[in-house]
């Protein structure tokens, strides 16, 4: 499959008073054309940071990218000049933020904000009037299953419910044609039924428009429903990557197994064992495997050396000495 996006050895550091926090520690991942990919990991593992570095919306005064490439359609996003990155942001990639309430400007109507995205997309010629833009926006609002788009168009964010705001964020991301959608835990802030609706809606829209999707989530269950391939991320490293089916049939990395045990099951009763401990210090990380302190299968070598990504079976990568 042709690669649309290819992230190679990306490192993202945040500068803090105590030194650099090495939040993303050399990750590799790729997304094919029309492919739906999941990035799964617990909060704070660097998922959002990775995704924000694709659109270069991290605060450049705090963030340092010492190494890595983000190849999008043959050119490296990290080395693009301002005009080139603006073209990517306007025409090719869009991102849905995880907090719909924070993602919308409180002092303008949602219609106004959608129109701004359309206006900046640069995909319409001069004959495309403001009225045409508005009808495009209204149509896009209707597409996310909102029944009275005209009223919503003139509403301010504070007048909408969380689910509505999340839908409006989806509208902004999909109102103009794009090749890649990055969805950062959409629906996390909402209750489960709405969350489920949002996920289904997102999948059908992405499939209908033949787009690629990166779905960021902390839930393997959500990823299983939505994506073709899953990357499991732990503390800034990709620890396992496989087709969704293969990952669930045969999870290899101890962290992936732990995550699967975390999902409470409806039958069987009791709370599962889960994973002990917390995400490690990013400022002085261990030289070895970052999961080593919490790993049930830790060996001596794990504390000294970083496990390289190994091909376990076809299309199934795992970074663990157990399989080396």
């Amino acid at each position: 499959m042709e690669r649309l996006l290819d992230i190679r050895n990306l490192k993202v550091w945040y500068s803090t008073y105590r030194g650099f926090a090495k939040v993303v520690d050399g990750i590799n991942m790729h997304v094919g054309k029309g492919e739906k990919v999941g990035l799964v990991g617990e909060s704070g593992c660097g998922k959002t940071t990775t995704m924000k570095s694709i659109l270069r919306v991290l605060d450049s005064r705090k963030v340092h990218i010492p190494e890595g490439e983000i190849i999008f359609k043959g050119s490296d996003i990290l080395r693009m000049n301002y005009n080139e990155i603006q073209q990517v942001r306007r025409r090719s990639i869009s991102m849905i933020s995880q907090e719909p309430s924070a993602a919308l400007n409180p002092v303008f109507t949602v219609g106004d904000q959608i129109m701004e995205v359309i206006r900046h997309s640069g995909q319409f010629d001069k004959n495309f009037s403001k009225k045409d833009m508005k009808s495009l926006a209204i149509k896009a609002i209707r597409d996310v299953l909102i029944s009275d788009p005209e009223r919503i168009f003139d509403s301010y964010p504070h007048q909408l419910s969380g689910g509505m705001k999340q839908r409006i964020c989806i509208v902004m991301a999909l109102v103009t044609p794009r090749e890649l959608l990055i969805a950062d835990e959409p629906g996390t802030a909402l209750d489960v039924t709405i969350q489920d609706q949002i996920h289904r809606l997102l999948r059908s829209l992405v499939e209908e428009k033949h787009m690629s999707l990166i779905m960021i989530t902390h839930s393997l269950g959500v990823a299983r429903e939505l994506v073709d391939r899953i990357y499991v991320m732990y503390a800034g490293n990709i620890v396992e990557a496989a087709k969704t089916k293969d990952l669930f049939k045969n999870p290899l990395h101890p962290y992936t197994r732990g995550l699967m045990d975390c999902v409470p099951r409806l039958s069987g009763g009791g709370v599962s064992e889960g994973i002990y401990g917390y995400i490690p210090d990013y400022i002085n990380p261990t030289p070895g495997c970052r999961f080593y302190p919490r790993c049930p299968d830790a060996k001596e070598v794990c504390s000294r050396q970083k496990p390289p990504a190994t091909v376990a079976t076809e299309n199934h990568l795992v970074a663990c000495f157990k399989y080396n």
């Binding site: 659109l55 073209q87 306007r90 991102m95």
Partner: peptide, 15 residues
């Protein structure tokens, strides 16, 4: 400046 909607707007290539 640190608000999410600013980075969202930047992400849409808004000038």
């Amino acid at each position: 400046m640190g608000k999410e909607y600013i980075s969202v707007a930047t992400g849409y290539g808004i000038s």
